[in-house]
């Protein structure tokens, strides 16, 4: 998605901003434009213009023979005009185009760090949760934060007492 203001740089900021008519809408701006205007005012007219310009550019690119994803049929141009991909396979199909875009959106991030499905199943998550809760409980007691400790003890009890031996009767809802 390109910045609604300069229509050149990639929009990296997505926030609620006030329009000229007083209503509020989600705006998509690049860092520089967002910085320049403390409380950004976008006119509906400029948004429409940006949309038309964007759509025209996309149409040009599409007619240049953009390939469609074999799985969901979306083209890169369609994605650019709607802002939503069609299926998980698009991340591979459009990799060369998506990579620089993703890099800009995530301020340089291109490699996932953190949780992955392989590392977890329902049970181990619960066990890990229990281990963490017990550790927090010990710390709370040490710091003499008894209210906190009581709260943690309740949660541990709920998890432990579950008939499935880990899944508490009360579920995980805090």
């Amino acid at each position: 998605m390109t910045c609604q203001k300069c229509k050149r740089r990639e929009a990296t900021r997505h926030e609620s901003v006030r329009q000229e008519d007083g209503s509020w809408a989600e705006a998509h701006l690049c860092d520089r434009c967002a910085e320049k205007s403390e409380v950004t005012l976008l006119s509906p007219a400029s948004m429409i213009q940006a949309f038309i310009e964007g759509a025209t550019a996309e149409a040009r690119r599409a007619s240049g023979g953009a390939a469609a994803c074999p799985s969901c049929g979306i083209t890169y141009a369609e994605f650019r005009s709607r802002g939503r991909l069609g299926c998980p396979a698009d991340y591979e199909v459009f990799l060369p185009d998506l990579l620089p875009l993703i890099e800009r959106i995530h301020h340089g991030g291109t490699q996932h760090v953190g949780k992955s499905p392989a590392s977890t199943d329902g049970r181990t998550e619960f066990e890990r949760e229990l281990i963490e809760l017990r550790r927090s409980l010990a710390e709370a007691v040490q710091r003499e934060q008894y209210e906190e400790a009581a709260r943690l003890r309740d949660r541990i009890r709920i998890l432990e007492e579950g008939p499935a031996g880990g899944r508490g009767r009360g579920g995980v809802e805090p």
């Binding site: 991340y91 875009l101 996932h112 199943d121 998550e125 619960f126 995980v172």
Partner: peptide, 26 residues
């Protein structure tokens, strides 16, 4: 995280080694 873990036991989520959990909007 706990809810996610529970659901992952029954559903296969779209995941990419490089991009992580895949979403409709990048």
């Amino acid at each position: 995280r706990a809810v996610d873990g529970l659901l992952e036991a029954g559903l296969t989520f779209a995941f990419h080694p490089r991009f992580g959990y895949l979403t409709a909007c990048p």
